[in-house]
């Protein structure tokens, strides 16, 4: 009876997610094994693993894989480090604390498309952009961000969006910090570095896990920021796996190769989720 109820309540969620996963997966597998280009209709003959070969030997493939990891890794590191520093900075009471918090969280609510356009034009434009003007103010040569440092530019945009998230999670966590423990440590003569190392860091470890987990989930599929700004270029300099599949599928109209790529992305996601399970297993359990 209990078992039945439990199953019954689970069914809609599990069933719909299963469909959501399995239908595209099966279709992808099918598409990936046939010749299927929207530009050359008619013939859908079986071609084995050729699409995979094509996708993997694409000159953009390895750069895209590398960029994907670089992007995720850098953003996670940046948001963790700065988020923690910021959280420690605004943790104790000071005038205007709540307004500062409101300002800090704001970028998290900006939709990726706007984020990208905002940075592409108003911040990073080499002539009129704010950054260029700042550079000029200090007598430096303005940087053409999207041309010269495409991946870095994307990393900056994405980090700007996710920094508030990390920061607020850390703030939340710091609030539950044991005051007496800190006071005891101070009486024992612990300096700031020691306090951070032995008290704050261990306390924040669970929130670090949460941040890494959530960011990993969302950053694996960064797309709009690249699509709207650099278009993956110049060359493949800012192409990640998600964007490469998009290029293959929608720009080259090659459904077969794009499906092969999609399956590769699924594989990547599964590798990532193995890490994820590790993290969850360690940190989210009581």
């Amino acid at each position: 009876m209990k078992k039945f109820t439990a199953r019954f309540l689970l069914t809609p969620a599990v069933g719909s997610l299963f469909l959501w996963m399995i239908v595209p997966l099966v279709m992808s597998i099918y598409f990936s094994l046939i010749r299927y280009n929207l530009m050359s209709p008619g013939e859908h003959e079986y071609i084995g693993l050729m699409n995979y070969e094509f996708f993997v030997t694409d000159p953009a493939f390895w750069p895209a894989v590398l960029n994907t990891f670089l992007l995720i890794g850098s953003v996670i590191v940046i948001t963790l480090v700065f988020g923690m520093a910021l959280a420690l900075l605004v943790n104790d009471k000071f005038p205007g604390q709540s307004i500062v918090r409101v300002l800090l969280i704001s970028p998290f609510f900006v939709m990726p498309a706007v984020n990208a356009l905002l940075w592409k034009h108003m911040m990073m434009n080499p002539i009129y952009g704010v950054l260029a003007q700042v550079w000029r103010f200090f007598g430096a040569q303005p940087v053409n961000w999207l041309e010269s440092y495409p991946l870095l530019s994307v990393i900056i945009m994405v980090s700007w969006q996710w920094l508030p998230f990390a920061c607020l999670i850390f703030i939340t966590s710091l609030q539950s910090m044991d005051r007496e423990q800190l006071e005891a440590a101070r009486m024992d003569g612990a300096n700031y570095v020691q306090q951070f190392r032995y008290l704050y860091l261990p306390h924040l470890s669970r929130s670090v896990a949460v941040v890494v987990m959530i960011e990993m989930i969302f950053l694996l599929s960064v797309f709009a920021e690249i699509f709207t700004t650099t278009g993956g270029g110049p060359g493949f300099a800012s192409t990640n796996v998600a964007f490469l599949i998009f290029v293959q599928g929608l720009m080259n109209f090659d459904v077969g190769v794009a499906s092969a790529g999609g399956l590769f992305a699924v594989l990547l996601a599964n590798i990532a989720s193995v890490f994820l399970i590790r993290i969850i297993g360690k940190s989210l359990e009581k």
Binding site: M27, I217, S221, I245, A258, G262, A265, A272
Partner: peptide
């Protein structure tokens, strides 16, 4: 409230579907 041994796995599996990049399944969808 009706936790079983498979609950954790189920949760992780659910999350892993979220990790699937949308582009990967765009065409089938």
């Amino acid at each position: 409230f009706f936790q079983t041994r498979r609950t954790k796995d189920l949760l992780v599996w659910m999350l892993s579907t979220k990790m699937m990049p949308a582009v990967g399944v765009l065409i089938p969808v």
